[in-house]
């Protein structure tokens, strides 16, 4: 009888451990895992309408991305970029693919369906791409964020130098901070979140901030934790906040409630609070997409890594006119931009 009870308890423990593991998996893997090791629960996929096609045959492009097309962050930056291309494009999208296997199926499916370019928008899709790309030598695959093509002849890699915009945001944040204490809400310590936060930290400290508190919540998708992280940072004295990845909307909500200015990245986040978002680093992937398309038309299907930065116009600091930014703070930001472009400032230094 005793053994039976013990066996029952072990079964229970195993069950509870399995359920909690499933919960942890879901919590750790939000759907903006642009650079994290995203594995998750499911992949609701949608197909979005294409951009307009004019007289000439539109270029068939497919995008597979981990989060929603309208996330005001990583995925939206690529959707906006493709829609901004000068040539007509027939765009298909599968978003919300935070299960890598689902993303791999979508990537292969789009290649089989005759798309000329397939964008695998997430570092975590790299291993899948290494298997799929060689099977479709006529298709160009774009993979980011990544700084190398894995030696694949039909893969172009892309990445942002997010530290540059982070540095500029940090300089401006320090200029408007009364306490000198600034808070940062990050997801998992990976990818362009790290480079952005590194640059922000360097910029803020270079312009007189006394303390930059960085909190990684451990999740790309846990909005509630991001909100609590922002609350903790404010209680700890931060009077300016920034953050990276999709879950930061929770932090923006707290900043908004507390009247704390916010700096965004990846996409323009002004719409979240038009009175408190000071500036956003915006990714203009179209700058390098145009180059990739030109190369494809010239017969080069891949094999090169591209980077967007302030100098090539791929990164842009969009200041919010609705925020009453002092002339000095704006000038400090502009000087930082100029310094990074001319090489006199190293945002990673």
């Amino acid at each position: 009888m005793r053994n039976k009870n013990r066996s029952r308890r072990f079964k229970l423990l195993r069950f509870v451990a399995a359920v909690m593991a499933l919960g942890l998996l879901a919590s750790a893997c939000g759907d903006d895992s642009d650079d994290g090791e995203a594995t998750g629960t499911t992949a609701p996929a949608t197909t979005a309408p294409a951009t307009t096609a004019a007289a000439e045959t539109p270029l068939k492009i497919a995008l597979v991305a981990p989060s929603a097309s309208d996330d005001l962050a990583f995925t939206q930056s690529m959707v906006d970029a493709i829609n901004a291309l000068s040539d007509p494009v027939d765009l298909s999208i599968t978003d919300g693919t935070f299960v890598i296997e689902d993303a791999a199926a979508a990537i292969r499916g789009y290649a089989e369906a005759g798309n000329e370019i397939v964008v695998a928008h997430g570092t975590q899709f790299g291993a899948s791409l290494a298997e799929i790309a060689p099977d479709f030598p006529e298709v160009t695959f774009l993979w980011g964020t990544s700084t190398d093509t894995q030696g694949l002849a039909n893969v172009f890699a892309y990445s942002p130098d997010a530290a540059e915009g982070g540095y500029v945001n940090g300089v401006v944040a320090a200029a408007i901070s009364a306490s000198g204490s600034i808070g940062v809400v990050g997801p998992i310590e990976a990818g362009d979140a790290v480079t952005y936060i590194t640059g922000f930290n360097n910029g803020a400290l270079a312009n007189g901030a006394t303390d930059v508190s960085i909190t990684y919540t451990g999740s790309f998708g846990d909005v509630a934790l991001a909100a609590e992280a922002a609350t903790a940072l404010i209680i700890n004295g931060a009077d300016v906040l920034t953050g990276s990845a999709q879950m930061v909307v929770g932090a923006v909500g707290v900043a908004s409630d507390e009247g704390v200015p916010w700096f965004g990245t990846q996409a323009n986040q002004t719409s979240l609070d038009p009175s408190l978002v000071v500036a956003s680093q915006v990714y203009h992937w179209e700058v390098i997409l145009e180059e990739m398309i030109d190369q494809r038309e010239a017969g080069v299907l891949g094999g090169e890594a591209f980077e967007i930065n302030l100098a090539n116009g791929g990164l842009e600091i969009e200041f919010n006119d609705g925020f009453d930014l002092s002339a000095d703070a704006r000038a400090a930001g502009d000087a930082a931009i100029a310094g990074i472009i001319d090489g006199s400032i190293d945002p990673n230094g």
Binding site: V19, G23, A26, S27, G30, T41, P44, G221, A224, G253
Partner: peptide, 15 residues
């Protein structure tokens, strides 16, 4: 929170 995002619950139901 005052905002929704896909997978907002982030595993809380399983917990």
């Amino acid at each position: 929170l005052g905002i929704f995002q896909p997978n907002l619950t982030a595993g809380r139901g399983f917990i």
